[in-house]
């Protein structure tokens, strides 16, 4: 039977490559009993819509986003707590462990099975006029964020003036000077050419985001154990590839962007961690056990 694997990435993106790999591994592993139709570039809808489609059985699998997924399982949003992970491998260790399992159990109650976590990179700040190596540099900065409460909380704690805006409207809004800057993973910044408008890139690494790979529960429950194992194996193997590509891309992008006129600086991580401690208090009030578990798992 045909399995639709849908995602929002365009050719060249690590997620795109990994989805093709997933299709290959899964088809091989099931001995041709299943063929995979990969639908890239949001042709099956945006992240939120792909999740609806998966749980309604319209598509079978989606490589999705942390933001959309946290609309269904709010706990997933906690992975974006400021400066939670020292680096990417630290994040992976947590996601592949007990925390990942717990999130999967929550998701299953909403009709979705989490097959595994790929990467979406760490977010950094870009500014039109200056670097923001110290939290004080952010004071009063008009910064665009996605409509995501965690991100807004982080920048309010830092004394900036965050305002959410649709991604599609961002380049125009930055050009008009309505915002002083924005924050995104380097791959997004590069693909939308945002470094041409906001050339001052500060490696803040303030927020990690995963790419949950999710299957519809109806489809998943109807599979035999061997096929389920194939889906998990495909997700893990393609995920290893995606994570290494993602790391590489981040490293390749810096010189590329510098050659195109961007200027990089590294943020004072300890100062930032101190300045965003209040965000932990806010979320610990709502999810006391999970926040504690996350901090411990991440080695804080």
């Amino acid at each position: 039977t045909e399995v639709i694997l849908a995602h929002g990435a365009n050719p060249g993106n690590p997620r795109y490559v990994a989805a093709e790999k997933w299709a290959e591994i899964f088809a091989d592993c099931t001995g041709g009993a299943h063929s995979v139709n990969v639908a890239p570039s949001s042709t099956m809808g945006d992240d939120t819509e792909m999740l609806t489609s998966a749980s309604a059985g319209v598509i079978q699998v989606t490589a999705n986003s942390q933001g959309a997924m946290s609309q269904i399982v709010p706990e997933i949003g906690l992975l974006g707590l400021p400066f939670l992970f020292a680096d990417l491998p630290a994040a992976w260790a947590v996601l592949d462990g007990e925390v990942g399992e717990m999130l999967d159990q929550r998701a299953q109650r909403a009709g979705l099975k989490i097959l595994g976590f790929w990467d979406n990179g760490i977010r950094n700040v870009t500014h039109t006029a200056k670097h923001v190596t110290d939290p004080a540099d952010l004071r009063g900065m008009k910064i665009r964020t996605p409509p995501d409460q965690m991100t807004i909380d982080i920048f309010e704690a830092l004394g900036a003036a965050p305002a959410p805006l649709a991604w599609s409207e961002l380049p125009t809004a930055l050009q008009s000077g309505v915002f002083d800057g924005q924050e995104n993973p380097l791959t997004n910044i590069y693909s939308a050419k945002l470094h041409e408008i906001t050339p001052y890139v500060t490696i803040t690494g303030h927020k990690y985001e995963a790419t949950p790979v999710v299957a519809g529960m109806i489809w998943w429950a109807g599979l035999d154990a061997a096929t389920q194992a194939c889906a998990l194996q495909a997700t893990a193997e393609a995920g290893a590839l995606q994570r290494s590509l993602s790391l590489e891309a981040d490293e390749d992008l810096r010189p590329k962007m510098e050659a195109e006129g961007a200027s990089f600086a590294i943020a004072d991580r300890d100062a930032y961690i101190a300045a965003t401690a209040s965000v932990y208090d806010k979320y610990a009030a709502r999810f006391p056990e999970l926040v504690a578990a996350l901090k411990q798992a991440a080695g804080q």
């Binding site: 809808g45 945006d46 939120t48 819509e49 609806t52 489609s53 309604a56 059985g57 319209v58 649709a166 599609s168 409207e169």
Partner: peptide, 18 residues
């Protein structure tokens, strides 16, 4: 094929801000 795709695709354009 699952016909639920119709409702899902019908709804999608109304989610676009532009």
């Amino acid at each position: 094929k699952p016909m639920a795709v119709i409702a899902q695709r019908l709804y999608s354009p109304t989610q676009s801000f532009p």
